[in-house]
């Protein structure tokens, strides 16, 4: 065989050690995590319960589903949408200063780093802990849910804002400079038109997620559809739970469809 080819073959990159190490680590972690699974509590009753749940979901309580009073599913859904809507908006506003402070292309590195740590801390505290804190402020109800949701939105929203800010095309500022714009005009016409579609898209996406996560608020009695759902499930009233779930799933599917369309429009025009 050709000497050069032999040489090239000898010098082929070999990362077997790397691959074996990574595989070993992953495998070890998996075995370790498997130790948490305790199957002893599962029994025949579990299967039976599962059957009840599924049959309940497929036979939703129609009275509840089409009940137009304040206890009916439609009103609860409306309340949930309102909580998610305002909660997202408030959270989106709170996230603006935080994300500008932690954008590494605008701020000195230490400030950006510290703000990022703050955002991470805000994100780490679980929703129901916030719920308990806010109940002291505004008592149980939808208002507390809204506040909780807004604080829980900050983490992800500011993370996506930061990406948009760091992706800014600064060459536009140069041409605005060349046609004689001052600083305010450069921000208004060079930066805002780039940021607004991105920010809007982020907020719509987060609204979607907040709607899905709204059930968590029910844990602390913070309004919306979560509490009735959890009560119904805890009391094994599967037909009721089914009615609420069907309503929620339909609502989320519709909202997701609309929000995806709007976001595609924002991205492609």
């Amino acid at each position: 065989m050709n000497k050069q080819i032999e040489k090239a073959y000898e010098e082929r990159p070999r990362n077997t050690v790397y691959q074996v190490t990574v595989s070993a680590i992953v495998l070890a972690l998996l075995i370790w995590s498997g130790s948490a699974v305790d199957v002893s509590k599962t029994g025949l009753s579990g299967v039976q319960i599962a059957g009840n749940i599924i049959s309940g979901i497929f036979h939703p309580d129609r009275k509840l589903l089409f009940n137009l009073t304040l206890q009916g599913v439609p009103y609860l859904l409306l309340e949930t949408v309102c909580i998610a809507f305002l909660g997202t908006i408030v959270g989106a506003f709170l996230a603006i200063p935080l994300s500008f402070l932690s954008a590494s292309n605008l701020m000195p590195a230490p400030i950006a780093y510290v703000t990022r740590l703050v955002i991470m801390a805000v994100r780490t505290i679980p929703a129901f802990v916030y719920g308990l804190m806010f109940i002291r402020v505004s008592g149980p109800g939808a208002f507390t849910g809204l506040l909780t949701m807004s604080v829980c939105s900050i983490g992800m929203v500011s993370k996506m804002y930061i990406e948009a800010i760091e992706d800014l095309d600064t060459r536009i500022l140069e041409s605005l400079d060349a046609c004689g714009c001052n600083t305010f005009q450069k921000i208004r016409y060079g930066i805002l038109p780039q940021l607004i579609p991105n920010f809007a898209s982020t907020v719509i996406y987060r609204f979607d997620i907040n709607l899905r996560d709204a059930t968590v608020l029910g844990l602390v009695g913070a309004g919306g559809i979560g509490a009735p759902l959890i009560f119904a499930m805890n009391a094994y009233r599967w037909n009721e739970a089914g009615a609420i779930l069907v309503g929620l799933i339909l609502l989320v599917l519709i909202v997701e469809y609309i929000s995806t369309r709007i976001r595609v429009k924002l991205a492609r025009g």
Binding site: A36, V37, D38, V39, K41, T42, G46, V47, I49, A50, I53, R212, D213, A214, T215, V216, L219, G226, L229, I230, M233, N234, L245, L248, I249, V252, L253, E256
Partner: peptide, 25 residues
Amino acid sequence: LSIVRTLPTLVTALIATYVFGLGTL
């Protein structure tokens, strides 16, 4: 896939506790 995605995690967890009992499973 969409419908599975709309199931709130909390609901899945609650159902799972009924089926598998309280605990990490």
